[in-house]
Structure formats: C-alpha cells, structure tokens
C-alpha cells in the first residue's frame, strides 16, 4: 500500500520540478508577473531611466489571443532603485490568458517583447485541484457511482480500489492522449473516440493484471479483484473524453487523470469511513443499505459544493 503511494509520488515529482526550471529569457527584463487585478509588474536586470520607464507610451500591451486590441496603460510607477516598474491599467486584466508586453526605447533597448502569464506550474496544479475537489468526479459530476457504492463499505476495500483505479487511469489516459493527438486528430477520426478510449482502458487493465500476477503475486492477491471493476467505472471513459474536448497537452492530461484518480480515492475513503459507522447506527429498515448510502453521498455532494469557486492560483 505505502509502496504504491510512494511509487505514484516518485512519478509525479520530476514532472513538477522539471517544469519550474523554465524562466524568463535573459536581457533587460528579469521577471514579470501579474500584480493586483489591474497591474503588471516588470523587474529589470539593471536600473532604468525613470523618464523612459514611467512614460506610458513606452509600453504596448495586448492579450495574446487578441493582438490588435491594445490595452491602455493608465500609469507606470517605478520603484526607487529603478529596477521594478508597475504598470497600472484602466480595466482589470483577464489573468487567465497570457499578455504580451512590448517595451520601446527603455534602458537603451530599442524594442523587446515578453509575455506575462500566470505560472504554468500553478495552472497545472489548479487542474489537479479542480479534478480532485472542485469538480470531483463522484460528488459533483456524478460519475462512477456503481463502483463507488459497491466498494465503499470497508476502508480497506476503498483504499485498494482507489489506488488501483488511480494507477490504471493515469496509464490509460496517457496512452489515450498519445493516440488522440497523433492518430485520431490528424486523420479526422474523432468519431472513433469512444471505441479507442475504452479499448485502451481494457488493454491497460489486462496489462496490469498480467504484470502484477507475475511480478508481485502477493500484491495481486489483494488488488487483483479491483482490476475488473475499473472497466465498469464511468470516470475511466469520462476523463479521456474531457481531455479530448479541452485539447490538453501531456502535462495537463497527466494532472487531470491524477486528480480524477485521487478524487475517486478520496471520495471512496470518505464514504467508507461513514459506511463503517453507519452499520452501528439504527437506520429504518427500508433505508438500510443503498438508500442511506445515497443520502450520505448527497450530503457529501453538498459539502463539496463548498469548494466551487475555490481559486488557489
């Protein structure tokens, strides 16, 4: 169990840190970021002339998707050491898209362009959190319920199912991404999505089954039973479909599938904790079993509504 979790972490961490390395290009501008909701902050490598840097005419700013619509810079303030300029805009900026800033005649450079966007790592993390909590597949999208109610009676089962599911979904969705990006899309075969995605899932399940049986029979004994159930879980087909309609790149896809799997694990664990206690409670005879489980799930769903609108980055 612990080994499996460690395995997942080991796979995820390099992806995280590999991406933090990407920084701003060298030159006049050291770093840029969004400030308050109508500000862009530009850091310079060397102090710049205040007269040049505070002139609003020195800057042209536009959203990357709309290069012809210039945003009006209403004011520029420079820090006392001359290395940080804060551009204020008349209107709040839409920080979800990248903004392209062009400098003219500042610090002895005729023209230089750079793009300001929210940190990509933060964006990836927000996909993960969104799939895990805000858009939890079980409690806010109502998917994978059959397996959810079937395997949430014991904590042990819940953990086993959740972990197996997470592994299968990450592998299957990664393969689906490759096939979607390089076969389905270029050849206009979008209508084959359902067959391909479900086929790849069966293949992954079969492969994990075979490998696990050979490599670690003890692990297989405790987790093998859940493998069959993975294929009957709607989430496994919903995630690749979502990936295809959002046109995610690989890292985003990875985060989405990790979040979906983790979210399922979380939902199972929460539900099983309640289920174990429910057995001791005095439930009306007609509501024993599934009916009360549904009502508990409804309460969880309402609690998860509280995550909507959550924004970390």
């Amino acid at each position: 169990m612990k080994r499996l979790i460690r395995l997942i972490l080991c796979a995820a961490l390099p992806v995280f840190f590999g991406l933090t390395g990407a920084g701003q290009a060298a030159g006049l501008v050291a770093a840029t970021e969004f400030g308050a909701d109508n500000e862009i902050i530009v850091q310079f490598n060397t102090p710049v002339d205040p007269a040049e840097a505070t002139d609003t005419q020195s800057y042209t700013v536009y959203e990357e998707t709309d290069p012809d619509i210039r945003l009006t810079v209403s004011e520029v303030s420079l820090s006392t050491d001359g290395r940080q300029a804060t551009l204020s805009f008349a209107e709040p900026l839409n920080t979800s898209v990248a903004h392209v800033v062009t400098l003219h005649d500042v610090g002895g450079v005729a023209e230089t362009s750079f793009s300001v966007s929210k940190s990509y790592l933060g964006y990836l993390f927000s996909i993960l959190i969104s799939a895990l909590l805000i858009n939890n597949f079980v409690f806010t999208k109502y998917l994978g319920l059959c397996v959810f109610f079937g395997t949430s009676k014991r904590k042990q089962t819940a953990k086993g199912m959740g972990v197996v599911f997470t592994i299968v979904i990450v592998v299957a969705v990664s393969m689906s991404w490759v096939l979607f990006q390089y076969v389905l899309k270029p050849f206009n075969l979008d209508y084959l999505q359902i067959v391909i995605f479900i086929g790849l899932t069966s293949l992954t399940v079969q492969a994990v089954d075979t490998v696990l049986r050979k490599v670690n029979p003890i692990l297989f004994k405790s987790f093998g039973v859940y493998l069959v159930l993975v294929i009957a879980n709607c989430v496994i087909i919903a995630v690749p479909l979502l990936m295809a309609s959002n046109e995610y790149n690989y890292f985003e896809t990875f985060m989405l599938s990790l979040g979906a799997g983790g979210g399922f694990l979380l939902a199972l664990y929460l539900m099983s904790s309640v289920s174990e206690r429910l057995e001791l409670a005095r439930v009306p005879a007609s509501f024993k079993g599934l009916p009360i489980a549904f009502i508990v799930a409804g309460q969880f769903a309402m609690a998860f509504l509280g995550f909507s609108g959550l924004q970390l980055f």
Partner: peptide
C-alpha cells in the same frame, strides 16, 4: 439542484423498499 439527485434516488429507493415490505 445538482446534488439533490442523490437524495431523490435514495429517498425513492427507500420508499419502494417500504412499499415492498
């Protein structure tokens, strides 16, 4: 509302069980 689906299904299942008994 979206999350009420669970409640409705749960209540209806319970109701049918009750009728049956």
């Amino acid at each position: 509302l979206p999350s009420a689906g669970f409640f409705v299904v749960g209540l209806m299942m319970g109701f049918f069980n009750w009728i049956e008994t």
